[in-house]
């Protein structure tokens, strides 16, 4: 089929649509009937979910680290926001799970921006600009193999990300509330290392529960890196590195029967560094919310 000129395309479309309108049916009552039924179903669905949610939610737990209470549809609300709590596992609402999962995939400091800015920006540009990208004038699916493939792939990718995002323990989701745990679990450390206390299961680097580095070794490794481990000199402040090193030395030693060297000294001193470094190392330290 020869390529149509803009004028041919316009005239062809106008002829076809004018024909369809001439032989069409009035908006009322035909389309209005369908619209009303579907709108009523949607409102009934929203009310149904609300009633189910209301019937199921239990009392609000005072302990923010406790499992979320409430039925299948979740609690009415959780405990009042408390910026001092570090062991909390923040999780967004379901429609941001896909973004949340991207954040988990690209969680090393060097790659973080891919998940947080680059991919979402590309998605938004593609979404808005799509009519200019797909220049195929045909509307039949059998003539649009590429568009059909993209149309199937995008929901599959989004649903997969949403599914895994919903299973995620949460950014900064440390298993314990020890000083440094939230930073260890929420930061780059968790990508590569297993540490029982923080509840992390990264399998790239050594299992810290077995390696049991002492404070000085941990400090040196986090600062300068070694082998596959990157240097975090530029990522964290001295206090933050000292906090992480102390946390790793203390709590890797606490696992099993052979405590690592210097564990006891580190246990005494490192919480002070964590105190100075602040909670999640994200500039949102544990200070009060209100002024």
């Amino acid at each position: 089929m020869p390529r149509l000129t803009a004028r041919e395309r316009r005239e062809g479309y106008q002829r076809e649509y004018a024909f369809q309108k001439r032989h069409g049916k009035p908006f009322f009552p035909n389309a209005v009937f369908h619209d009303t039924i579907v709108s009523l179903i949607v409102v009934a669905l929203i009310m149904g979910l609300t009633i189910l949610w209301y019937a199921q939610f239990g009392p609000v737990s005072a302990d923010p680290t406790a499992e979320r209470v409430g039925g299948l549809l979740g609690p009415a609300y959780e405990a009042k926001a408390d910026p001092g709590v570090l062991g909390y596992h923040p999780q967004p609402d379901w429609y941001f799970f896909f973004l949340f999962e991207l954040l988990r995939i690209f969680k090393t400091p060097q790659l973080l921006i891919v998940g947080t800015i680059i991919i979402p920006t590309i998605w938004m540009v593609l979404l808005i600009g799509w009519p200019f990208i797909d220049r195929n004038p045909d509307r039949r699916l059998s003539r649009r193999p590429i568009a059909l493939a993209i149309g199937v792939m995008v929901p599959v990718v989004l649903l997969t990300l949403t599914f895994y995002g919903s299973k995620a323990p949460g950014v900064g989701g440390a298993a314990s509330t020890e000083p440094g745990a939230a930073a260890f679990a929420g930061g780059a450390c968790s990508t590569c290392h297993v540490l029982a206390n923080a509840g992390t299961a990264g399998n790239v680097g050594p299992v810290l529960d077995d390696a049991k580095p002492d404070y000085a070794t941990a400090l040196k490794l986090i600062t300068n890196g070694q082998g596959g481990m990157p240097s975090f000199k530029a990522t964290y402040t001295e206090d933050e590195i000292s906090c992480l090193a102390g946390y790793v030395a203390t709590w890797s030693a606490a696992v099993g029967e052979t405590p690592g060297p210097n564990a006891d000294t580190a246990k005494e001193t490192y919480p002070a560094s964590c105190e100075k470094a602040g909670g999640l190392f994200t500039g949102t330290a544990s200070s009060a919310a209100g002024p």
Partner: peptide, 13 residues
Amino acid sequence: VFDERAYWATIVG
């Protein structure tokens, strides 16, 4: 809502 989830999810966002 200003509960725990609201607060921390917003910080992440």
